[in-house]
């Protein structure tokens, strides 16, 4: 009799335990599903204003331009010359390496134009890059192990809650756009480079130099990535051409001998480098800032670039 009572009590306990934990897990799962839905919505938002066209590449070309923000003003003008502009703002050589490998896997690549400006081997590029976005192009070989591959390529890329860069972008948007009352209710226009007086141009140029040329030596990580890019191109029989983009006069003068020497690395490896950094020294109107062309500048530069290439490398 006693054992019967004990049995019933025990069953009652098991029932209530099962009921409670099932209820708890159901609530937790429902909540996680809700978070998943929010994540999807946030991802589409992020895709709209951060990833934008970064994951968009035309694989029908055989020549590609790989550069950071110096290459973006060239837009699709390069396509007139049968070159696809695959540049991305803040792209580092690690990002370009991923893109290059992706192109080799998925397209028929004959020639790569790559930026070898003074700053491209800067240690600053180790922090300011697109590793979160370029993981879209990455393969398992780009990561030390399978776990890191899955985490970076899929979890971090698609899960907004795991990606610090996405969070930072939303945070900056809220802080800079919403909480900054001075920006409410009006259209903002940025002063173009030519409108700035010399003192302002110098101040902005100095900021840029301090940002990129703070360390005496180039980044090892960037240098190794660039060396790997050279080797990959060599082993896949791809022509590699180094490009140095135009600079504004003030910046050009202040930069003087500051350089981490990406172009020197190319020259040492007998790779062709075209140097355009003094091309527009008297044309500030073609720049949006000290070292970035504007849309018009990009269009003009594309024609000059490919005309000169036709002359030296038909």
């Amino acid at each position: 009799m006693f054992s019967g009572i004990h049995q019933r009590k025990s069953n009652l306990f098991i029932f209530s335990f099962d009921m409670m934990i099932r209820l708890f897990l159901r609530q937790v799962l429902t909540f996680l599903t809700l978070l998943l839905v929010i994540n999807v919505l946030l991802f589409f938002m992020i895709r709209g204003f951060y990833i934008k066209g970064y994951d968009d590449v035309d694989l029908s070309f055989s020549e590609y331009l790989l550069a950071d923000s110096h290459g973006t003003p060239l837009g699709d003008f390069t396509e007139i010359h049968e070159v696809h502009n695959f540049s991305g703002q803040s792209d580092s050589y690690l990002d370009m390496e991923r893109k290059l490998k992706y192109l080799i896997r998925n397209a028929h690549v004959n020639r790569i134009y790559i930026s070898v400006d003074d700053h491209t081997l800067s240690p600053t590029r180790e922090d300011q890059n697109n590793l979160d976005r370029s993981s879209f192009y990455a393969d398992q070989d780009d990561y030390p192990d399978y776990g890191a591959f899955i985490y970076n390529k899929y979890l971090k890329y698609y899960c907004v809650f795991l990606n610090d860069r996405y969070s930072l972008i939303i945070k900056n948007f809220l802080q800079d756009e919403l909480f900054d009352f001075s920006k409410w209710g009006g259209v903002r226009s940025k002063a173009s480079w030519e409108d700035l007086d010399i003192a302002e141009q110098k101040e902005k140029s100095l900021d840029r130099i301090e940002n990129y040329f703070d360390e005496p030596l180039p980044s090892n990580i960037m240098t190794e990535a660039l060396k790997r890019i050279i080797l990959i191109c060599e082993s896949n029989d791809i022509d590699l051409i180094g490009l140095r983009f135009p600079l504004s006069k003030t910046y050009y003068g202040m930069l003087a001998e500051e350089s981490y020497g990406a172009d020197t690395l190319f020259i040492k490896n007998n790779i062709f480098v075209i140097d355009f950094d003094d091309l527009f020294l008297e044309q500030d109107s073609l720049f949006s800032d000290m070292d970035h062309l504007d849309r018009e500048g990009g269009e003009i530069f594309v024609d000059i670039l490919f005309d000169s290439l036709d002359n030296v490398w038909p």
Binding site: I38, F161, D164, S167, L174
Partner: peptide, 18 residues
Amino acid sequence: WSIYVFIILIIDVFGNTS
């Protein structure tokens, strides 16, 4: 639940998780 989600979003966006 909206409050919980809001706190999670604040943690995600404004949390110092760098």
